[in-house]
Design a protein around this nucleic acid. Structure first.
Length: 438
RNA sequence: GGAGAGAUGGCCGAGUGGUCGAAGGCGCUCCCCUGCUAAGGGAGUAUAGGCACAAAAAGCUUAUCGAGGGUUCGAAUCCCUCUCUCUCCGCCA
């Protein structure tokens, strides 16, 4: 959410910046509402002030035992006018709020301008794609060839975009998550968290998934309740990313200055409806309704958020380096960034079977965009509450990392060499073959 | 699921219809005093808005005592709904 004062005083500039992201701010509607708001709010407050004065008088008179009927009749007229003005004001404020909640964040000055992913800029690259002297297979063929990856059964259990892993592959998946958690907690100083996978609408509003992206989420109601829209039904949504529960930990909090920065890591499943992505990445583990991710979140002093973003990306890169998986870091352009981000780096890992780099991590500085929605604050140097900056990034998407390991570490006989750093998590196993798949 | 108790400022805690945005305490900040330390004295100490202004400060003003609604000229205080916390019982991992 943007600051409304900024919109009032600097509307043209903001409209221009938003246009860079392909968002058209409804400036006329906003201006009209603001003009109306100003009038009604002033009027409302005047009426309230009159009422307060009169009520005070009544109180004083009564305590002296004087007759109050004269003042009472005077005030009686106020009631209706006040109620009407209050209702009108509330209506306008709601409308304004609705507009505000749907406006994306402003891009940071350093963000390259562009319309779509073609405008993204490569920042750096690490590692050399391996040369294969045999015909390579993609992760689906490898996994199915080993008898450890089974999409048919997954489809029977749940439908499309679900997966079933078995034996050594399921373990390799677990090993990756454990490895990532260990590196982030032991080497990068993150606090490990275990968080709810079902969250409230308030939390989703806080991080920006609601109200605009409801169709991307899965909603859940308790058994026995007729429908999610029934009144007073407590409604949950499955988290699309651990960013939601972790970041919302500081919602409506005032964090002491000395406890900053807060750095949290969590390994969770993520659930996405993938509405609107029909036909895209239908093969394999790349785009699933349910996938595991190790998420990194920083809650920081506003002066430090860009420094923190660099650190965050570095922490995610470290995982790929230790796994010896080639990758590149892209700065997303204005047109390709997510709703809440002021600046985003994507890390893309090399997938030999696709002969391309694919996104495996997205690291964003949201500045105060989320904290303003959440009222997440800290007590600053002057002892005054001020908005925090929030950052989040994948460190990494576990399923896609698994894909990268399978494809990059495949052997001619269809087996997989287990990356060295993962072997301690695999009981020392160095290879995943059809025989080693216990 | 049943029965009961509760939610007040950074924290503790008083307040059951009228100068209550809220006593008192703790904490914190500033000042004074004491050679230092300890103790003591004094002052200050919520947040978010609106108006006006080129802007800031000061000013005027509104809202906020878990959330939302209601009663009333007036609500922290009365009524309703909800959320959360605690205790006991039931169920459960």
């Amino acid at each position: 959410m943007l600051e409304i004062q900024q919109l009032r005083t600097d509307l043209n500039n903001i409209t221009q910046q938003l246009a860079k992201r392909g968002y058209t701010f409804p400036a006329e509607a906003f201006n009209a509402l603001e003009a109306e708001r100003k009038i009604i709010q002033t009027q409302t407050q005047e009426l309230q002030a009159q009422r307060n004065i009169a009520s005070k008088k009544i109180g004083q008179a009564k305590s002296k035992g004087e007759d109050t009927s004269a003042i009472m009749t005077e005030v009686a007229h106020l009631g209706d006018a006040l109620k009407q003005a209050e209702n009108q004001l509330e209506h306008i404020q709601h409308h304004l709020q609705k507009i505000l909640l749907e406006v994306p964040n402003l891009p940071h000055i350093s963000v390259p301008e562009g319309k779509d992913e073609a405008g993204n800029v490569r920042i750096r690259q690490w590692g050399e794609p391996r040369q294969f002297d045999f015909d390579i297979k993609d992760h689906v063929s490898i996994g199915e060839g080993l008898g450890l990856l089974d999409f048919e059964t997954a489809a029977k259990l749940s439908g499309a975009r679900f997966s079933l892993m078995k034996g050594g592959l399921a373990r390799l998946h677990r090993a990756l998550a454990q490895f990532m958690l260990d590196i982030h907690t032991l080497e990068h100083g993150y606090i490990e968290t275990y968080v709810p996978y079902l969250v409230s609408r308030d939390s989703l509003r806080g991080t920006g998934q609601l109200p605009k992206f409801e169709q991307d989420l899965f909603a859940v109601t308790a058994g026995g309740e007729e429908s999610s829209s029934a009144k007073n039904t407590p409604e949950y949504h499955l988290i699309p990313t651990a960013e939601v529960p972790i970041t919302n930990m500081v919602r409506d909090e005032i964090v002491p200055l000395q406890s900053l920065p807060l750095k949290y890591v969590s390994h969770t499943p993520c659930f996405r409806s993938e509405a609107g992505s029909y036909g895209r990445d239908t093969r394999g583990l790349i785009r699933q309704h349910q996938f595991d991710k190790v998420e990194l979140v920083h809650i920081v002093h506003p002066d430090q958020s860009y420094e923190a973003l660099e650190q965050l990306v570095g922490h995610a890169e470290k995982i790929l380096q230790k796994l010896a998986l080639p990758y590149r870091v892209m700065a997303l352009c204005t047109g390709d960034m997510g709703f809440a981000a002021a600046k985003t780096y994507d890390i893309e890992v090399w997938l030999p079977a696709q002969n391309t780099y694919r996104e495996i991590s997205s690291c964003s500085n949201c500045e105060a965009f989320q904290s303003r929605r959440m009222q997440a604050r800290f007590r600053n140097e002057n002892g005054k509450p001020a908005l925090l900056h929030t950052l989040n990034g994948s460190g990494l998407a576990v399923g896609r990392t698994l894909v990268a390991v399978l494809e990059n570490y495949q052997n001619a006989d269809g087996s997989i060499t287990i990356p060295e750093v993962l072997r301690p998590y695999m009981n020392g196993l160095d290879q995943l073959g059809s025989s080693g798949a216990k």
